[in-house]
């Protein structure tokens, strides 16, 4: 464990908690892409199948359970509890255009052709594109509440910190996970234009992000 990975995991946890609390306390999921949240729940489900088979550490197990519970709870809030506030007309990204290529690639490019390894690879590839329905929804509506932008900021920051973690691990222990690194770079690149808008607009005190 290194400081970049720890900060990355904390940033990821903060993002997930921000989103959950925003929906739970405002009793509304307006402006939130349910599709992205379903994809994230799928990412955690396919990645954490080893939750019961391989024990890494208490921290690892606890964080996996927390991520799984919060992501499914968020999907529940969006599609069941507060479904009247779910803006399905704006959440129109065709997720099959993500799932099919990601599934295909995880069969072609993986470390080991076993079910658990292919599912782990699928989760890594899927995570890099899972935010696209949410970013697409924001460009479609042309705006996002500031709390949603804070969610996206910490979510984007988490994988950027993981990139630093991989540089650190490469130089200190020769660790190099090519699939995770390449996907992490792609994932972080998708956030770049959002990061620019976030710094230039939201941090200037605007109540909400309105796209030009």
């Amino acid at each position: 464990m290194n400081v970049f990975r720890l900060l990355g995991d904390v940033s990821h946890l903060v993002a997930i908690i921000i989103l959950f609390l925003k929906i739970f306390r405002s009793k509304s999921c307006a402006g939130i892409s349910g599709k992205s949240q379903v994809l994230f729940a799928l990412v955690f489900t396919t990645r954490y199948l080893d939750l019961f088979t391989s024990f890494i550490s208490i921290y690892n197990t606890v964080m996996k359970v927390v991520f799984l519970v919060l992501s499914y709870a968020t999907v529940y809030l969006i599609y069941l509890r507060f479904r009247s506030s779910y803006d399905s007309e704006s959440d129109t990204f065709r997720v099959e255009f993500l799932l099919v290529p990601v599934a295909g690639l995880s069969f072609l490019e993986n470390y080991d052709f076993t079910p658990i390894e292919i599912l782990w690879t699928f989760s890594i590839y899927l995570e890099s594109v899972a935010i696209l329905p949410q970013l697409f929804m924001i460009t479609k509506t042309g705006e996002a509440e500031s709390i949603t932008t804070h969610y996206l900021f910490f979510l984007g920051l988490y994988r950027a910190l993981y990139l630093a973690n991989w540089v650190w691990r490469y130089h200190t222990e020769g660790f190099f996970d090519q699939i995770a690194v390449v996907s992490g770079v792609v994932q972080t690149i998708f956030y770049c234009d959002f990061f620019y808008l976030y710094v230039t607009k939201v941090l200037k005190g605007n109540s909400k992000l309105t796209l030009p």
Partner: peptide, 10 residues
């Protein structure tokens, strides 16, 4: 190279 099956990252 990564150790197979041992994903120690979240």
């Amino acid at each position: 190279e990564r150790v197979l099956g041992a994903h120690d990252e979240l």
